[in-house]
Design a protein around this nucleic acid. Structure first.
Lengths: 308, 308
DNA sequence: GAATGGATTTTGATCGCAAAAAATGCAATA
DNA sequence: TATTGCATTTTTTGCGATCAAAATCCATTC
């Protein structure tokens, strides 16, 4: 893994190929791509050279790079291999250990470093992230203490109640405006889900899709405080939900409801959309609550966690 | 300034003396104080020695320290001098510079270090804090970019609308329970305000009081997501409001409404309390909106900011 | 016997240098 | 003339050594 921007650029290019934005034979303009990603041309060039090695693009000395003929086939596979931000793995491990009760409430940095084999820099990054998400904080003096958020059984329901407070309200913001392109994209995603992706997609990706929908809806409120609050709760929620991800059946109802809400927004009936959204969230929450007793009954799935 | 725990301990002791919890002649048990603050006895001892030099406590070799006879008089003065967390000053300066438009949207870390004379560690601390609050983020590649939150004229109103979504909802949480002691303390604070503190108190402290009330109310929901979201928005709001702090008259109405809400909570009528709280927030927001045109008209108070 | 005062150990912060990564400028080229 | 390819410059990060601060332990004292 070279620099992070280089690999991000590579993933972005692959994504464009996979989505059909870039077709075989197209020339890759480094300046254009650089502008899109908000970086300079240099890492773009490196990324293209990297992709050339893997045969996704072909170098054409003096004229840059062009998309290879069998790129679309290759793009799909390579895309996934990029997803191992090594620090992220430790992050989920820590969350898991907290949920398990393996990791004590109070711990020194030294102990964390020994436990997870981290360098000082990595540890501070990790702890800063966790602190920013609100489930750990520095103690006066030494060490850190974890909050009870992750270990409280009711936490997941609580997160839904916050969402029920903010999401429907965001639709009633005075400047609410969902961009047609975004609406269209959301719509297509949901249709693809109903078209079969619900059964085939990776559980993580399925969760990601749900998040995206709700954040797109709230983002259109033009009020960044709403979006921030939602994003924040979602980050923590991700640590809580995965046990119930196995149940895919609920996604069918969900996708249908999502489409209904989009339709209402498109028609401009935001008040009704807001009510629907609230009902939708309430339904999902009830669904979760029903599963909860099972989850708490000690039938922990063990260690075949997401980090495996 | 010694270690931060030492000075914090000193401030805590001074506060206890000022509040009358500790009276002249009382012995200071180091273990007890250490437990209260969640630290070891060592920094407590250092703090006491520090206070002994200033004559607030007297050393009694072999038997520790006792509170000096004229301690209450001294405590009030010394308490204030502690309030210059140097990093905090820079933080407000940065916010001010953003509001002014002095600080560009895009800036490198190097430039920040030069501009504010910070060490590497200090700068990362500062930027992490700002990033956590959501008004700046790393750019891909180098440097940071500030979001428009602080410079958007409507931001303050937007923050109120988020509060209107979450605060009233928090009162309707199933496990809502405001501890009688907290209620009593809130009540007394508001009465003291009406008793004259509105006119005499420092503007910062006045703002702090308002925050405390609302966070106490929401905190009683037993749902940390609600409290987190509120705290977060309040931290940013602090950067936005101070221009309108000058107008003290609105605090009279506010305090009265606060008392009314407390009364409703005490009587157990949470539904009504929730409605009152919503109305209260709406009133405050309207009040702010009326002042806004004045603030935007270019009558900036200049640089006699809070960091002075 | 409980609490203190100080010595020892552990923990975390700071500083400087070296290396990596990205941005920028410039000549070459289709 | 727009675009690429490469060299140079700037910015940031990583790591090790050094230093300060806080926790812990133990002898001492009232």
């Amino acid at each position: 893994m070279k620099g992070s921007v280089v690999s991000e650029a590579a993933t972005a290019i692959l994504a464009q190929i996979a989505d059909g934005v870039l077709k075989p034979g197209d020339r890759l303009r480094s300046q254009k791509l650089a502008d899109q990603l908000g970086v300079s041309r240099f890492p773009i060039g490196q990324a293209m050279r990297m992709l050339a090695e893997r045969g996704v693009v072909v170098a054409d000395p003096g004229r840059g790079f062009t998309v290879a003929s069998d790129a679309p086939r290759l793009a799909g596979n390579l895309d996934k291999s990029q997803r191992d931000h090594l620090l992220s793995a430790v992050y989920f491990q820590v969350a898991e250990d907290r949920l398990n009760g393996t990791l004590p409430d109070r711990v020194s940095e030294q102990a964390m470093r020994d436990r997870y084999n981290l360098s000082r820099g990595q540890l501070t990054q990790l702890l800063n992230r966790i602190a920013a998400e609100g489930w750990a904080e520095r103690r006066p003096g030494y060490g850190w203490s974890f909050s009870a958020v992750l270990t409280t059984p009711a936490a997941l329901e609580q997160s839904y109640r916050l969402r029920m407070a903010i999401e429907p309200a965001s639709l009633l913001e005075p400047d609410y405006a969902l961009h047609p392109d975004v609406l269209k994209q959301c719509w297509e995603t949901e249709e693809r889900m109903l078209d079969g992706e619900i059964e085939t997609l990776d559980a993580d990706l399925l969760y990601e899709r749900g998040i995206r929908f709700h954040e797109a809806i709230v983002g259109a409120s033009q009020n960044s405080f709403f979006l921030d609050a939602l994003k924040r709760v979602n980050r923590i929620r991700r640590l809580l939900v995965y046990r119930s991800l196995a149940d895919r059946s609920r996604y069918w109802t969900q996708a249908a409801e999502h489409l209904e809400i989009l339709k209402l927004i498109e028609s401009g009936d935001l008040g009704f959309a807001s009510e629907k959204l609230r009902a939708h969230l309430e339904g999902v929450m009830k669904n979760i609550s029903n599963v909860r007793p099972l989850l708490e009954a000690g039938t922990r799935p063990g260690q075949e966690s997401r980090t495996a």
